[in-house]
Design a protein around this nucleic acid. Structure first.
Lengths: 219, 219
DNA sequence: GGCAAGCCGTACCGTACGTTACGGTTCGCC
DNA sequence: GGCGAACCGTAACGTACGGTACGGCTTGCC
């Protein structure tokens, strides 16, 4: 399984200057992909290579710090346990779907996932685990309480929350992420994302909504 | 959009020896990831580096040739336009789902997608386009006739075949591919794949089946 | 002012690897 | 047998880049 320590919060121990350096590395990563050099980072951040090595150890350390820094920036607000009716549940699901689509189609997410996927091949570090922990698994942790509350309120019907979540995930993301990672041009306008979010939510409710009586077997 | 020339068949112009070399490169790619060296390929294939460069130009040429070679190996049989009832449609969909899960969870697919994703970052070659063309888009080309036939036979109800396909794709793949690419251990036994295939098919039929009368809006 | 710490800029080193060059061997053909 | 083409094995070259060292500058402290 994944390292439990992958999502420890390191953003507190960073000085402002260090954050600025990591931001520079992040921008460079988005522009150049994984073939960014230490020299390039130093030049972009207007710092010396010696400082980079003193702060982050080596290249992999810089990369992991960059990934964790970005992860710490998207730390999310826990969803409030509001009173749940079908409308608010639908709105909540649509919000999650739109947020997720916005994330996975963003330049930084694509760049970060690219380097993490590349590094997962030669398992030196656990960039993949970090990305996964702060991406897909963080989404699950945020969404599951909503699903459980929906079930509690009699709005949803499923036996395994994880299975339900993964179906929702599939209906939302479909082939978007893999196509973007593989370099397919895929314009996701704000409107298209909104449309996809309501479509995915409607489909999910059709499959797991309790009201309709009939539903697909959820295993 | 994607290069139309990405799926030209090069498997005919290759000698047996060349195919053997590419097989060696493929095995090495699965084992070592993207950091395979020309020397390693030459040693594994028992050929000289001079030959590698004469045949494939440079390292990128060897990589693209390897990817295309693997792609040409999984060229599929077109689905036969059999008489369609619900049982045969269900079986066909389950077959597609199981096949796809088997493919994306295979070691070679993971390795190939990893290098393609990595190369998509620094857009020197179009490995990503090749993988996409022979993976996700090939699947769509094979599946769409089945969906259309299902609609024709009054078994399915949708307005846009592409949208229906992408929902099917999402229900089948869910988070499997991205998790595997990011290095998450995810045991997919034969039985689990079979179970997922029927689950995804049932969910798809629940959403797009025509018999039930009620269905989710498909856009 | 003197000084130490932290950092910038840059020059430098070592190495891995892509690419090329070359001698030796096999094989088909005359 | 003689010959050329294709190819193997390996040595050699060039370079890019990770990592280190060092001189100069600023800043805070005595």
């Amino acid at each position: 399984m994944l390292q439990a320590s992958a999502d420890i919060d390191t953003s507190e121990t960073l000085t402002e200057r260090q954050k600025a350096v990591l931001d520079a590395a992040l921008r460079l990563l988005v522009e150049e992909g994984d073939n960014l050099t230490m020299t390039a980072v130093a030049r972009r951040a207007s710092c010396s290579k010696e400082t980079l090595y003193k702060w982050f150890g080596d290249r992999d350390g810089l990369l992991t710090a960059t990934v964790q820094w970005q992860a710490s920036k998207v730390r999310v607000v826990p969803v409030d346990g509001e009173r749940l009716d079908l409308a608010s549940l639908t709105a909540s699901l649509e919000g999650f779907a739109a947020d997720w689509l916005k994330v996975i189609s963003s330049d930084t997410s694509i760049a970060l996932n690219r380097v993490a996927v590349g590094h997962a091949g030669s398992g030196k570090d656990d960039l993949g685990a970090i990305v996964l922990e702060n991406g897909r698994f963080a989404l699950a942790r945020r969404l599951k309480p909503v699903l459980l509350a929906g079930k509690q309120a009699g709005l949803l019907d499923f036996t395994d929350a994880d299975t339900a979540f993964r179906s929702f995930f599939g209906l939302v993301a479909r082939d978007v992420q893999i196509r973007l990672l593989l370099g397919d041009r895929l314009e996701l306008t704000e409107a298209a994302i909104g449309g996809d979010a309501v479509r995915a939510t409607q489909q999910f409710l059709a499959l797991f909504g309790a009201k309709t009586g009939r539903r697909a077997t959820d295993l």
